[in-house]
Nucleic acid binder design. Sequence first.
DNA 1: CTCCGTCAAGGTTAG
DNA 2: CTAACCTTGACGGAG
Length: 304
Amino acid sequence: MKIGYPCVNESLDCTSGATFRLASYSDERVELAVAANLQCLQRILEYNVTNGLRFFRIGSSIVPFGSHPINTFPWQTRFAAEFQAIGDYVKAQQMRISFHPDQFVVLNSPSTDIVQRSIAELVYQGSMLDLMGLDSTAKLQIHVGGLYGDRDLAISRFIATYQELPEAVRRRLVIENDDRLFSLRDCLRVHEAVGIPILFDNFHHECLNHGEPMAEALRLAAGTWHPERDGVLMMDYSSQQLGERKGKHTSTLEEDLFREFLTHLHGLDVDIMLEIKDKEASACRAVSVLRELQLVAAETTALS
DNA sequence: CTCCGTCAAGGTTAG
DNA sequence: CTAACCTTGACGGAG
């Protein structure tokens, strides 16, 4: 079991997502930003290893405008060595990496322009994993997309687009159940059609489900991951922020709820991404909880 | 230096 | 039909 957090480390004084405005685009700024972002990414990964955090979601803007036509800078070749060095470190430390392209990536949109831009973004993010030399257990997670007033049609459009994706994207792509539109059950329909793994989000499942108990939902999602090709089930973990609208993520890990959730695993191996406001602070507390329960190793290699 | 409006991109829902 | 929301940081012009 690996524990992680998304994109941003609040303890370090650097960001791996430095960017700039489209209006001030230049190749030179891309080069400077990518160099700084990769350097920071390496520092974040080292921090993670020191703290027993072996799962990390890299932010989408390592390369500013990475899939925008304005960006013709050959960053893939210019930074090939840097990406490879990071990938070597990830592999040496047995870490797991993912990306989560944001809301603008919608594969089931009725607009061919939006679909094409979405595919370009997936190609860009997937190519970073390729440059790192990571296998297909490193994933790109997205949601099924929009509803457009017809769930069946929306799902069939996703399936049709998925089947046309470049193999480099398809081998990494996974879908996540969301909290309002496409439930675990909907994702299972997509899985049955094309075999895509389902990244399980416990909090979204609490917000939107069809009565499947948590343990059953975990079992169903885990069954969509092919062990050799995909690795163990990836999941996002969060809980409700009390007093806020339904779906609002908690600001810090509620340890009692986390312990309660863990009882539903029944020995299932999962890699857990904590989608919680205070980032690595909560992730470190989750690691402590798991060590008490002896679900992760007690020692961290970097402290030797 | 600090403040704050604004930033590539989509879609849903409330009003 | 239009505006707010999601979610969030940080860019960069203004003062």
